[in-house]
């Protein structure tokens, strides 16, 4: 018999009268499911970058549409006469700035940049990036771990951009990082999450928030990251270089919320064959 009927099938809509009590609240909208990093709560689980936006105006609209409360900036030499800055945009919109150490290839570079960022932006939070080469921008694990340990010692709240390596993620947590941010794929590649199994391993063992960072190209990939159990998604290029950055920002906001809700709801097991969701014909 092909159709095995199960009266209390989990797929049967309205089968359970206890659904209302058991249903989790709707997270972000209800404010009941905050993202907590280093004791600080965020309603939004989408962390955005600011690089690559066609203009500050579009960036500002995209940030608003994304609902983000935490956004990365880089630190560079002042260019004389520059009008309006990303710093102004963030302050105007009440978005917390998360300085990064992009462009650093050694622990020493990263420490110098982090100290300057702390002075410039009056925050001891830092998104630690120590990359190995320009072609892949992949994290250099040795320099990264060294930098993380030294920054933690100096009192920084360290959020490291790391490889999708569960062992390195664990080491970063052990030296005191406030979160771990494994990549889905190389920065700006839009290749999505290339090793979902490793991301799940990182999530399983982590006692700090796991933020997927880099590689996200479109909304379904952001949702997947959350379904895998990540606590948040960090992305920049997927929004800033989309044909319509503001619309993509809204899509990412919805995807992160949907993925989070799906994770909390608990998905059905995957089956090889059909399982009827309507009662069998008598």
């Amino acid at each position: 018999m092909a159709h095995t009927h199960t009266p209390a099938s989990p797929g049967a809509a309205g089968a359970s009268g206890t659904g209302r009590e058991e249903r989790p609240d709707h997270g972000a909208e209800a404010g009941g499911d905050p993202l907590v990093i280093a004791g600080r709560s965020f309603t939004s689980r989408l962390i955005t970058g600011t690089g690559g936006a066609p203009s500050l105006r579009i960036l500002e609209d995209a940030l608003a549409a994304s609902g983000t409360e935490l956004t990365t900036v880089a630190l560079r030499r002042v260019s004389p006469g520059a009008e309006g800055t990303v710093w102004d945009v963030l302050r105007r919109n009440g978005i917390r700035a998360l300085p990064n150490t992009a462009g650093c290839f050694t622990a020493g570079d990263a420490l110098r940049t982090a100290r300057l960022a702390r002075e410039a932006l009056e925050t001891d939070w830092v998104k630690l990036e120590v990359v190995a080469d320009d072609r892949t921008l992949l994290p250099d694990p040795v320099e990264l771990l060294d930098a993380a340990e030294r920054l933690v010692d100096e009192g920084f709240t360290v959020l490291p951009y790391t490889n999708d390596d569960p062992v390195l993620a664990r080491r970063l947590e052990q030296v005191g990082c406030a979160a771990v941010m494994p990549l889905g794929a190389p920065i700006g590649s839009g290749l999505g999450i290339r090793n979902p199994h490793n991301i799940e391993l990182i999530v399983e063992q982590a006692h700090v928030p796991v933020v997927i960072d880099a590689g996200i190209g479109t909304a379904s990939e952001a949702a997947l990251a959350m379904e895998l159990g990540c606590d948040a998604v960090m992305l920049a290029t997927a929004v800033t270089r989309a044909q319509d950055p503001v619309l993509m920002a809204a899509a990412m906001r919805d995807a992160v919320n949907a993925g989070r809700a799906a994770r909390r709801a608990g998905r059905i097991p995957v089956r090889r064959y059909a399982q009827a969701s309507s009662p069998a014909v008598d």
């Binding site: 900036v73 030499r77 002042v78 800055t85 990303v86 710093w87 998360l98 300057l116 410039a120």
Partner: peptide, 10 residues
Amino acid sequence: VDVLTAVQGG
């Protein structure tokens, strides 16, 4: 002397 500020990035 290096004078730095926040710019779009990340």
